[in-house]
Simulated scan of single mutants.
Amino acid sequence: MESYQYVKDCWYVAGLSHEFKPETLTGHKIAGQPLVIWRTRGGSVVAFDNRCCHKRFPLSEGRLLDNGTLECAYHGLCYDEQGKCVKIPSHPDGHIPPQARLRPFPVIEQDGLVWVWPGNPERAALFQPPRTPEVADPTWESIDSGPMHVPANYLLLIENLLDITHFYPLHDGNIGDYANSLLPIELVEGEIGGYRFVKTIRRASNYVQPPYFVDWFHYEVVDREHTHCMLSPGLTRVELRVAPPGQLGTGMDRGYVLLHTHTPVDDRNHVWRWCVNCRADHRSRGDPAKSAARRIAEMFPNVVAQDRWALERQQQMLDYPDDGYSELFLKSDKALRRARQVLAQMRHEEILAAQGKASAASMGSPVLTKQG
């Protein structure tokens, strides 16, 4: 593993739009930063440092008053929707120190997701959160797993998602088989929204599908296109299209768009969500009474449990020093190696930006000299 732990200057998913009910406080920890997030009575989602500026009490444990202000549960300091302290009960004269305010964090609500920027706010405009149009599209059925707390560094999940050669043996018998390991891998790179993406493409002809895919997508033998794309450090997009041999792109296609969000909590934990998206009119073969998306949402947790089992054990091995150990990279690991390099470069860029900001601040500070 690289020496860095996570990218902080990045848009990360805090949750789905429907999870942020009006005037309901929620507490989060994203990239080491404690956050309080809520939807205001006006409908917008706001995010602030979760620590009261008085005695660090978590504001998510407080309450929203009838006038829309957030009241700290410890000493009653009240903050408005801009994070400014507007009332201190122990200051009956009304005096409020100018530094009595909360640090705000940029928020973007887009395509059914709420994205938060936990890093340097001056760099937020350089990037745009990836689009997830299927989540809000009525012609698609979208089912979300909800947040899953995983005791592992989020880079381990990103690498897992870019590498389906582990489908055998880890997922053998459900979504994987030995033949999957033999498929050639095409690597594509580019840039969208300021992020450098890494994408793998695996194509197969006359492929005998593993059991779960037959259950979900009907066909036993298919032509298949399977892509995994790390669009940003916060989201990996998986697309699968299958059809009878020779019929891809003819209207016989079935498949899914599977969105994985990976939000770092700290260097040893992350929050993983998956969201399956299928055409709303597609039914499953295994249970024709259920839509394809619903059937996948019921069965996919079995696959996720296997991945979590592997991620947690990898994290445990990271606790040991590398003395005498050297990690082996295979030809099939090219995508995950590029993902490591992309994240390392992003981390390097944010460190340089922070150093430049600190240098500029020091240049503008008065110089103190010792008086003789």
Rank of each mutant, 00 (worst) to 15 (best):
V214G: 05
D266K: 09
S44W: 00
H348M: 12
V13A: 14
R237F: 15
Q247I: 03
Y74K: 05
D111C: 09
L330V: 02
V45Y: 02
N302S: 15
D323Q: 15
I192P: 00
P211F: 08
P211E: 10
I185G: 00
T236V: 15
K29D: 10
Y320L: 15
L156W: 02
S232G: 02
S284K: 03
A353I: 02
R196S: 11
F197V: 05
F20Y: 07
R338L: 13
P106M: 05
I185C: 11
W274Y: 13
Y6R: 09
V303R: 02
V36S: 01
Q209M: 15
H54E: 06
W117C: 01
A124V: 04
V367A: 14
P129G: 04
G190Q: 05
S332N: 11
V303W: 04
I175L: 01
A280T: 04
L16K: 12
K357C: 09
N153I: 05
L126T: 07
C10I: 04
V221F: 02
L156R: 10
E191H: 06
E134S: 09
Y4I: 10
L25A: 01
G249P: 07
R39I: 03
R241H: 14
V221G: 07
Y195V: 00
G15E: 02
A124I: 03
W140Q: 04
Y256S: 14
R51T: 13
E109V: 04
A243L: 12
L311K: 01
D253F: 04
K87Y: 15
R338Y: 09
N174Q: 11
L65F: 00
V116L: 04
E298V: 07
G356H: 04
M1D: 13
Q82Y: 11
E19N: 09
W216F: 10
H28P: 02
E239S: 14
I88E: 07
P288K: 09
V304K: 03
S232P: 04
T261E: 03
Y325C: 09
P321C: 09
L368P: 00
V135L: 13
I108W: 01
P211S: 11
D307K: 01
V257F: 13
P244D: 08
L126D: 14
E350C: 06
R241T: 15
V13K: 08
Y207D: 10
V238N: 10
